[in-house]
């Protein structure tokens, strides 16, 4: 049984059955890093909120670690297990002191005080914000705030963290900070689901899921997915810049075996061709 399994899920925000998700099927294994792509309004964020029982499906089931999200008794256990990091770092921090904010989650779970202390220190070290533990959130940069928000989720000891466009409001250096943190979580064995608009981030994932119109368009390793440049373009989605370049060159008659995904691969490939 997969760690998270979404089966035939339909979900609509209104009574008129305008389904945002239309029979979505998705399986996520333990320890996997899955990137979720799709243009605005395709249902990615809705899917994220279904994974931690913030929303319940109208039809179909979402099962997390053998717990079904529709069982109200399990709601908080599921939310502890599947942490959700949102886009705007400012609106996720509750307390005026960093360490107290990180403690918010474990406090809600009723963890004993000494253990909260340990968890908070450990979570802050993992995201590299330990030195800032006594600071006020409004004095930090966007990337730092987002790392604190991640620490707040980590302190609840989740097995999976879902990121809903965590870098959308950050500057390039903030994005790097957050992406490095996400990669570190994956190394620590935490299952990561990353919703993003940035193809360069999606390339780092084990598996890419492309959504369109409340359903899955295509799934596969980053290389498999981004090789289908034509399909992605048709659904007005981007591909990484390196891939785009090679795709355009291939239109001019250039032949290649494997689609390059990042600048390095692209440079190597072009070097080979130009020699």
């Amino acid at each position: 049984m997969s760690f998270i399994s979404v089966e035939d899920v339909k979900f609509s925000y209104d009574e008129d059955k305008n389904y945002v998700l239309n029979g979505l099927n998705l399986k996520i294994e333990k320890g996997e890093f899955v990137a979720l792509l799709g243009h605005n309004g395709c249902g990615k964020s809705t899917a994220a909120k279904l994974l931690n029982a913030m929303f319940l499906p109208d039809e179909g089931t979402v099962v997390v670690d053998n717990m079904i999200t529709s069982d109200e008794k399990l709601t908080y256990e599921i939310r502890r297990n599947v942490g959700l990091v949102l886009q705007n770092p400012d609106n996720q921090l509750v307390a005026s002191v960093i360490e107290e904010d990180v403690a918010f989650g474990p406090e809600n779970l009723g963890v004993p005080p000494e253990e909260i202390r340990e968890r908070v220190d450990k979570a802050l070290r993992t995201v590299g914000m330990y030195e800032y533990r006594k600071h006020a959130p409004h004095k930090l940069s966007g990337g730092q705030k987002q790392r604190v928000a991640i620490a707040g989720i980590l302190a609840m000891h989740p097995e999976c963290v879902v990121f809903d466009e965590p870098t959308a409001m950050l500057d390039p250096s903030g994005r790097d900070e957050v992406m490095n943190t996400i990669l570190r979580l994956k190394e620590n064995g935490i299952t990561v689901v990353l919703i993003t608009h940035y193809m360069d981030e999606a390339v780092m994932a084990d598996r890419v899921v492309v959504m369109d119109n409340g359903n899955i368009l295509t799934v596969g390793t980053p290389r498999e997915v981004f090789s289908q440049v034509h399909l992605l373009k048709k659904h007005s989605l981007d591909v990484p810049q390196a891939t785009e370049l090679i795709y355009k060159l291939s239109g001019a008659g250039l032949k290649f075996d494997e689609m390059p995904l990042n600048t390095e691969e692209c440079v190597n490939f072009l070097e080979g061709v130009l020699k």
Binding site: Y76, L84, L86, N108, P113, R117
Partner: peptide, 17 residues
């Protein structure tokens, strides 16, 4: 939403660091 994601369920059963 963020508070609910962090299992906030009011004051009952809450501990403090």
């Amino acid at each position: 939403v963020a508070m609910e994601c962090r299992c906030y369920q009011g004051g009952d059963g809450r501990t403090r660091m």
